[in-house]
Design a protein around this nucleic acid. Structure first.
Lengths: 354, 354
DNA sequence: ATACAAGACGTTATCGATAACAGTCATCGC
DNA sequence: GCGATGACTGTTATCGATAACGTCTTGTAT
């Protein structure tokens, strides 16, 4: 099919080895010979086969990236950051969307190993990814976890301060007058979910507000999950005055449910979440959020991974915690003022819970 | 490093060939032998090396995907669609962000060829990608263009009806009363830009409104570009009453410029664009847009590509045109009502053009 | 008993590139 | 004039898997 080195060699009247030398810029090749080889390469449009080269060198210059979904506005920048950093180091990225599915994730991992990817950047689906990860680590496979840590797994990772971020979000809610704050989160099977729940709880207790288990709604962390959780919340006898959702997908679903009920944010309900979304932030700067440096997760993760691949990393696992920003906008009421419903006004335009 | 087939063979007391037969499920292997081999594979945690297999079979089961930027809310779903479709067919996807840069794009293409990717899904940076593409096609490299066509390039592609979409958008603007409509587009070096400009022009002329070159603002199709173009528009002596931006990135920049001037949409300016963004659509359903089935670009593109790779496609180039949806929301005024400024009211709260 | 077929498995060569080693010259010093 | 030195280039084996063919059993028909 494609032109091989031997054909180039034949055309240039030399051996394959000489062609190889020219391509790799090794010295010890006559200037005239080099010219002939280069001419042959050009004439035949020869492109070296990296597979063959990889077989010999045991290097594929490829890493894998597994995220639940590149469409998620948090993971898309992660992917770009990782890809850009990898490319600058001469590496390629195999993109995998696990859809948060454990089986699919496992299949991807196996496939990447079979492909002899040199390392893996993984945003694990959940704690249950642990088994697969441990067996990778046992084989000393270079691995960096992104966004989510795994219990009792010692390995490089880039995460952010989820508990701290959640705490600040909830403290803000409390500061503007909210005391009944619902939390929409996952099934407590991810470190981010657990940490954010912890931050939520800590902020509550620090303000002397008792933590109430019945205000925590566990669901899948996607749009549907957010929608369902919000429906449950709205079915409550006593409505909370604020909702804190665990991420950018759940907040969308929550918002849908709110709108269906004719409820306005922040008039009828305050709303905050993790993850800012560039488009929304500019087009309608509205949601108060914790912003995470998503692209940095990817670029730093890639950097750590490449160091480990290159054997330049210490044996000890490195854990990088990125800082988050609280961005206050309008979804909790005017600035730091107390929003209407939290002030004890009667609700307006709110369909009664059924 | 990793376990090889020979090691498995030795442990099972057979030859490598027999192991190969077991792995590939070929017949002609004794049941007992097969059991021993499988046990050895399991015991050693053996994973076949796809590189080596690929060298023999001349198949890497890998395709390349080049988009300007996965973070772009249009291209992220394209990437997911492509990846999902590819995976279902046993293929892997190498993700590349060209940043709309011709040189980078070319580097990626070379790299994919060197990696012996079996095909390429490409959303070209601009018309100038033509040269690189032609040389790929000359080598019969399986290729499918996404989103943007290339002048005089005969090859499979998945595009949408850009002219038609633009026409509907502008017809809508006209229907609600606008006559001075500015258009923010690219340097006219992409098919999408040209087609949308054409649709814009056609809609205008069909309504008896003369096309005015000075209302077309050419810029880079990113946030900054949109911002700059909007600034130029706002510096005009006679402000238009509506702006039609070529895509979802420029609309963000345009919005920023508008906001800086204290202008509200649609009160002070109507605004429409191509590409819907899921998050915005739900969180603040506001912009009137043309929605393109982004994910379908990816999945259909992958499908066409895989057919071509498998030799199942006719030699003739296939051109798939996806239909678009006009989604009317609030950014042109209330429903089909005529927005304030278009009604000839004096502008309010608008900083005077300098 | 002989031959022949079929099943089970091993050998060798190959995919394309390269590392390690082995020539082949020309030139140089004594 | 002869080995030595060094510059240049070719040979062979290898990476891991597999296609094609070869070998060795065993069964079976004649």
């Amino acid at each position: 099919m494609a032109v091989t080195m031997r054909e180039v060699a034949r055309r240039a009247g030399v051996s394959a080895m000489t062609v190889s030398r020219v391509i790799n810029g090794r010295e010890g090749v006559d200037a005239e010979t080099q010219r002939k080889v280069e001419e042959a390469i050009h004439a035949l449009d020869y492109v070296p086969n990296r597979l063959a080269r990889g077989l010999v060198s045991q290097k594929t210059q490829t890493i894998g990236l597994i995220v639940p979904d590149v469409v998620n506005p948090f993971f898309a920048p992660v992917a770009r950051g990782a890809e850009t950093a990898a490319r600058k180091a001469g590496y390629r990225v195999l993109l995998c969307n696990s859809e948060g599915d454990l089986r699919l994730e496992r299949e991807y991992i196996e496939d990447l190993v079979a492909h002899r990817a040199e390392g893996l950047l993984l945003a694990p689906a959940s704690d249950r990814s642990r088994t697969a990860i441990l067996s990778l680590l046992r084989g000393r496979f270079p691995l960096v976890l992104l966004d989510r840590a795994l219990p009792e797994v010692e390995c490089d990772m880039v995460v952010s301060d989820s508990a701290g971020g959640a705490r600040r979000l909830v403290e803000h809610l409390i500061a503007v007058g909210h005391r009944e704050i619902a939390h929409v989160t996952d099934a407590e099977d991810t470190s981010t979910g657990r940490e954010r729940l912890r931050g939520y709880r800590e902020a509550l207790e620090a303000a002397g507000i008792p933590f109430r288990e019945e205000l925590v709604f566990r669901t899948t962390v996607d749009r549907i999950g957010g929608y369902r959780a919000a429906q449950e919340i709205l079915a409550l006898q006593d409505l909370p005055t604020a909702i804190f959702t665990v991420n950018n997908m759940t907040v969308v679903g929550t918002m849908e449910a709110l709108r269906e009920r004719g409820m306005k944010v922040p008039r009828d309900m305050a709303l905050v979440c993790f993850d800012d979304v560039e488009h929304i932030a500019v087009l309608s700067p509205f949601l108060t959020v914790i912003d995470q440096p998503a692209e940095t997760f990817g670029s730093l993760g890639a950097q750590l991974l490449l160091e480990r691949i290159g054997g330049k990393a210490s044996a000890r696992a490195r854990r990088i915690v990125l800082q988050t920003d609280l961005i206050v906008r309008e979804s909790c009421g005017e600035g730091t003022g107390v929003p209407p419903r939290a002030r004890g006004l009667t609700t307006q335009g709110v369909a009664p819970a059924t």
